[in-house]
Nucleic acid binder design. Structure first.
Lengths: 364, 364
DNA sequence: CTGTTAGCGCCTTCAG
DNA sequence: CTGAAGGCGCTAACAG
């Protein structure tokens, strides 16, 4: 009942297991065509499927790539996952997926599980955190990764290097210029917007969020504008929604107080937050961009048909995922050298769309 | 350099590998506490990580669950994947992910790869096809699954049973009442809409699409309305967009011709198509719901903030993924029995929102 | 070119 | 309660 084995195939074909192995699984030279045919036929008739576990054990390499994300249903991660998947398939490897919710402890556990499965490489996506409650977790994660690398594993990170990791050989990171792009966005918005700026950021200590906040502030500064107020919220749709509600309240009361209030330009540090914020603002009867501008970050594909079209920063998410996959696990020689703590550059692009268009001041 | 082994741990602790195995990996009875401690310490100091491949080989069970989707970046699939992931984690198993683009040939290959890895179970999501060009592929896929099941594997399918599969023991499907729900939607729309109905369907032969189309027609019929015209398009955003463009043209020319044209209610067989269609309609200067109603299917979470809010049919996607995972692979006894070709019922809910609201006929 | 001999790392009877 | 022996299925040197 259990799947048939190589030995059975060999016996049926009247050859040794070694020979059967040579013909069925890629070996340097294929045995004589006559015998090869016999073996193939035997395998076929038995419905033979090689046992990858056994192969892996024997060759000590699993043909597996591990991917760690916060949440696979989040479009940011699923886009990256697509890229990782594509790269994996090019390397003829399968993808092992772990979702962690973003806590370093769970990420450590995932790395450990991947190590147990002897994945050839590991890709980690998702913002790093420097918050105190994550200190310990970060250390554990770093240690686990370090061990994994020492044992010959390769790891790719998209975003920021793991906090506290030593970036040994076999460790490389796809760096995203969040700060520069956010600054670029700010400068662009400063050009068309004359009111106040507000930033809806994630929790303090989330590196991705922090970078974008700081970058945006820097951009404003470079444009000769004062720093924007920063609202802290969850790094997700509902965080954006809550912050949006707060802002909507301000806008409404500002209008009620008279025409003195200045129009707000809201920058949410990612698209889903921006969408949440937009929903909140609108639920208050306000309109975008008439009553407020709003911009996001990531340029999530599923959100592109949102109206008014959301100004944002496009990121090559799929490409990032692809690049994060270590080239060829176990690669030796020159690559090995240059791979030590290497970093792959990636860039994005500011997309100005309807949500931040200047509005004709019909009412004044 | 390579990770240390159980044998090394045992040697360091001065015990036999068997003993070390018993204390480190769950065995019935733990050896004496004194010796257990020694082993644990040895393992700790060596940074021992059990080799899951070897364990799997020895126990002939991998602790892996395989998931097959068309495209992990598609929100429909990523939502299901989240559910599958959750169920996997509850079973203390890891998730192996394969994306196929939807062709039965690739799905067959994925099943084969999973079988090679000895996954405890396989979950397949994504619409089945009865198109001629998929005949052969379907047969191959069915055969592969059959073999997998015969070898003790369990498979769960979300949506439709695999075309041609024999539904043996260990095979179960999460059935979605696409037809009934679409009919329900149609009846609801018929109540508030007085114009013509048009359906934007996927390619003929895609079961999910076909069910929804047929169901919608049935609903119209039950409401005493004539059958709707069916436009065929790709089962994705751009398919919806193209069909939407066509419809936008008709609407515009209809309006130009005079007030005789009746308002259109467009039903796209899934949300992303609906969003694409809406974008196309709008790009033509038309407005929703003023110039046309539009409805989708799935109630994709990321699209909920779309304005006007899209009428659609909510589906418990995550739950569907969760339910698709076979309870406990290798389960014996009574469950085994009732699992043969079983089907889990699931249901959805019609969500009427702004995009199909009746419009006050100010212009007449 | 083919067959034989050892393991890969672990679990699991079976004795002691 | 512990150790010794055999095998899970396959590959990789060696011989022949």
């Amino acid at each position: 009942m259990a799947a048939s084995t190589l030995t059975e195939v060999a016996r049926l074909a009247g050859v040794s297991p070694a020979t059967a192995s040579r013909v069925l699984n890629g070996s340097a030279r294929t045995p004589g065509p006559d015998i090869a045919e016999r073996v193939r036929k035997a395998a076929e008739s038995l419905g033979y499927i090689p046992n990858a576990q056994a192969q892996g054990l024997a060759k000590s390499s699993s043909g597996l790539i591990g991917l760690i994300v916060h949440d696979i249903a989040d479009p940011y991660f699923s886009a990256i996952a697509r890229g990782v998947q594509a790269a994996a398939r090019e390397q003829h490897k399968m993808l092992l997926l772990a979702t962690t919710g973003g806590t370093p402890e769970e990420e450590r556990a995932a790395v450990s599980a991947f190590a147990a499965r002897r994945t050839d490489s590991i890709v980690i996506a998702g913002s790093r955190s420097t918050r105190v409650q994550d200190q310990e977790g970060n250390a554990g994660l770093a240690a686990e990764l370090d061990r994994y690398c020492r044992n010959g594993g390769r790891v790719g990170v998209v975003g920021h290097p793991i906090v506290g990791a030593s970036e040994p050989e076999g460790y490389h990171v796809v760096r995203v210029p969040n700060g520069d792009l956010a600054a670029d966005l700010a400068r662009n918005l400063a050009r068309s917007h004359s009111g106040d700026f507000v930033i809806i950021g994630g929790p303090e200590g989330l590196l991705t969020s922090d970078d974008r906040v700081r970058g945006f502030q820097r951009g404003l500064e470079e444009a000769g504008l004062p720093q924007a107020e920063v609202l802290r919220a969850g790094f997700n749709r509902s965080g954006g929604y809550e912050a949006g509600l707060e802002l909507a309240g301000r806008i409404s009361s500002g209008r009620a107080a008279g025409s003195g209030a200045r129009r707000l330009c809201i920058f949410a540090v990612n698209d889903v937050m921006a969408i949440g914020a937009a929903a909140a603002v609108r639920s208050n009867g306000l309109r975008i961009p008439r009553d407020a501008s709003i911009a996001g970050f990531d340029d999530i594909e599923t959100l592109r048909d949102f109206r008014p079209a959301l100004s944002t920063v496009w990121l090559p998410l799929e490409e990032m995922g692809r690049l994060a996959v270590p080239s060829q696990a176990g690669g030796t020689g020159e690559n090995r050298q240059s791979d030590g703590g290497s970093s792959v550059p990636v860039t994005g692009k500011v997309m100005l769309r309807r949500s931040t268009e200047a509005v004709t001041e019909a009412a004044a």
